[in-house]
């Protein structure tokens, strides 16, 4: 008979959907910022409207994420304690300080995008904020990965998956919001504008496909490291699968990664003999929604499942 252990400790999830939403929005915001800087600075500075959308989206997403996280705090009005104390060993402290700096910087950067004319100040600021964006993006993976008490999170691929997720969800958020912006501005009905949008999107689409494949790879690595890890790792994986397997596999991977890849391949394949811009726009919109939905449920399932691990406390 397996040992029966009774240990009555506080029940429930310590971190819930609000933490998952913060990780999701924070990651997508950082991704959006990098899309803005990357698309404008590293692809010949010919794209303007999409980087503009991305620039405005970045501080909003990260800011909303932080606000939602504050709702989770027991004493949200004491948040200033994070800024007046020095706690460099705590990822949350890094998150608090660097996310605040990033939001302020990204807001400034967005304001410099009010007009589409080249702006050297904007360029310098964008490049200066890029390392900060990467730190904030990394924080969203590190927050979970540095906790040995939670074997599901405490792996290297956790960080890699978070990095890949901020690339894919960031791009998806930018594409979706830009489509909505085009629709609202009446530009979606104009074939010339649609053509420009699709052309401008080409490098982003390539990065997105790379990100999706990278994300699938990191998920596989993650699964492998747990599946062939020690007893605690294997237990954590089994418990996570039993509790949140369907959410993770169907919504996180199926909806968020596999379907968008299939959609993209199908669109390119079908359109090869006869180019159909409207179908491509439709594909971009649907794929973006799927990536965002999947991205959120991936975060949610991981945050919750990581805490399911039974507190198997006993003596050796």
């Amino acid at each position: 008979m397996d040992p029966e252990i009774v240990y009555n400790v506080q029940q429930g999830f310590f971190w819930d959907w609000k933490v998952a939403l913060d990780l999701f929005l924070g990651g997508a915001g950082v991704g959006a910022f990098l899309v803005s800087v990357g698309l404008y600075e590293f692809w010949g500075r010919k794209y303007k409207r999409i980087p503009q959308t991305a620039a405005f989206l970045a501080p909003v997403l990260v800011g909303v994420g932080v606000l939602i996280l504050m709702l989770k705090l027991g004493r949200p009005f004491h948040i200033f304690e994070t800024f007046i104390n020095f706690a460099p060993t705590a990822p949350l402290w890094w998150g608090g300080v660097f996310q605040t700096l990033f939001i302020a910087g990204a807001l400034w950067y967005a304001l410099l995008w009010r007009d589409l004319e080249p702006n050297p100040k904007r360029r310098k600021l964008g490049l200066a904020l890029t390392p900060l964006a990467l730190i904030v993006g990394g924080y969203h993976g590190m927050l979970l990965a540095v906790i040995p008490a939670r074997p599901l999170w405490n792996t290297g691929p956790t960080v890699l998956a978070a990095l890949a997720a901020f690339v894919t969800t960031g791009i998806a958020a930018v594409m979706l919001v830009h489509l909505i912006r085009m629709k609202l501005g009446g530009r979606l009905a104009d074939p010339e504008h649609v053509q420009t949008f699709l052309t401008d999107l080409t490098p982003v689409r390539h990065v997105l496909v790379g990100g999706l494949i990278l994300q699938l790879g990191t998920f596989f690595l993650w699964w492998q490291s747990l599946r062939f890890g020690d007893l605690a790792d294997r237990t954590a994986l089994a418990v996570a699968n039993a509790g949140f397997g369907p959410m993770y596999w169907w919504l996180g991977i199926g909806v968020g990664l596999v379907l968008p890849i299939i959609l993209g391949v199908a669109a390119v394949w079908k359109d090869s003999p006869e180019y159909n811009p409207r179908r491509l726009v439709w594909t971009v919109g649907v794929a973006s929604c799927l990536i965002l939905v999947g991205g959120f449920f991936f975060r949610l399932s991981v945050v919750l499942a990581g805490q399911l691990n039974p507190l198997y406390v006993t003596l050796p």
Partner: peptide, 30 residues
């Protein structure tokens, strides 16, 4: 993992909690 140093070590090695600094993030519990 405490972002505000509310959880801290005393000189005598006790792990203590400064309630005035606690923001209720529950990182310590996790």
């Amino acid at each position: 993992n405490c972002p505000t140093t509310a959880m801290h070590k005393s000189e005598d090695g006790l792990t203590l909690h400064d309630a005035s600094k606690c923001i209720g993030c529950r990182a310590c519990q996790v």
